[in-house]
Simulated assay, not measured.
Amino acid sequence: MIKEWATVVSWENGEALLSCDVKASCNSCASRAGCGSRVLNKLGPQNVHTIAVSSAQPLVPGQKVELGIAERSLLSSALLVYMAPLVGLFIMAGLFQALFGSDLAAMSGALLGGTGGFLLARGLGEKLTRRNEWQPVIISVGLPPDAVRVDTFSAQDGR
């Protein structure tokens, strides 16, 4: 199970709207100062993803929840997204090269196969996201933001 913390944006009728921060993997590397990838990550947009997850327990905006998704579903979706266009590209490029015998035909076939593989992955992805095992689930729920109170005392108060 792959786990990530999210913040509740709203909860209504058993469905929670959650906000997840996008984290770059560059934050924990020892060579952060001289890394070109870190600089490129800072230049791009800092995205926040919002997802809807079913929750029978009432949640409060600002509350933290731990989400989990099955590793198998994540790996399967990554395999589908990356491999379908790549396989389509190679198959159609080879087929067009064999049929027409020119590099231009192979390039056209590669473009057609890559686009077709992308569209296939997109269509299958929409069908697969309806499966329950592909949906993120709430594993644990943190305290509501107003449930935690911190009192500070100074030496002048005499307490």
Rank of each mutant, 00 (worst) to 15 (best):
V8G: 08
C35R: 06
V8A: 09
E15S: 12
W11R: 12
R32E: 00
L17Q: 14
L18E: 12
S19A: 15
W11I: 10
C35K: 08
V9P: 07
G36N: 12
G34F: 05
V8L: 10
A33K: 08
C26P: 05
C20Y: 00
E12T: 14
A33R: 10
A16Q: 08
L18N: 13
R32I: 03
C29L: 02
A16G: 13
G14S: 03
K23L: 08
S31E: 04
N13R: 13
G14E: 05
E15L: 10
V22Q: 07
G36K: 12
C29W: 01
T7R: 14
S19E: 15
A16M: 12
G36L: 10
N27Y: 05
R32N: 04
S31F: 01
K23A: 07
E12K: 15
S10D: 15
T7I: 07
S10H: 05
G34T: 07
A16L: 09
D21P: 00
C29S: 08
V9G: 10
D21A: 05
V8R: 03
N27T: 05
C35W: 02
C26Q: 01
S31V: 07
E15N: 12
D21G: 00
A24H: 09
G14F: 02
A16C: 12
L18K: 12
S25A: 14
A16T: 09
S31N: 12
K23T: 09
A33L: 08
G34M: 09
G14P: 06
W11H: 15
C29H: 06
C20P: 06
K23D: 04
N27E: 15
C20R: 14
S28K: 10
G14Y: 02
A16V: 09
N13T: 08
E12P: 10
C29R: 04
S19T: 12
G14M: 02
C29D: 03
V8Y: 02
V9R: 10
G14K: 06
W11C: 11
D21C: 00
A33D: 11
A30D: 11
C29G: 02
A33S: 13
S25H: 07
N27M: 08
C26E: 03
K23N: 06
A30V: 08
T7K: 12
A24E: 07
A30T: 09
G34W: 04
W11G: 07
G34I: 06
V9S: 10
D21K: 11
N27H: 14
W11A: 10
E15W: 05
A24Y: 00
K23G: 01
C35A: 06
S28Y: 02
S19M: 14
R32D: 00
S28Q: 12
S25P: 09
V22R: 11
W11E: 06
L18R: 11
S19F: 03
C26F: 01
G36T: 09
V9A: 14
A30F: 00
L18V: 13
S25E: 05
V8N: 08
T7A: 10
R32L: 04
T7V: 13
D21F: 00
N27W: 01
V9L: 14
C29F: 02
D21I: 00
D21T: 01
A33Y: 03
S28W: 00
A24P: 11
T7D: 08
C35E: 04
R32A: 04
A30M: 09
S31W: 01
V22F: 00
G36Y: 05
S19D: 11
C20D: 03
A16F: 11
A24M: 01
G36H: 11
S31C: 04
A30K: 15
N27G: 15
C20F: 04
W11T: 07
T7Q: 13
V22N: 06
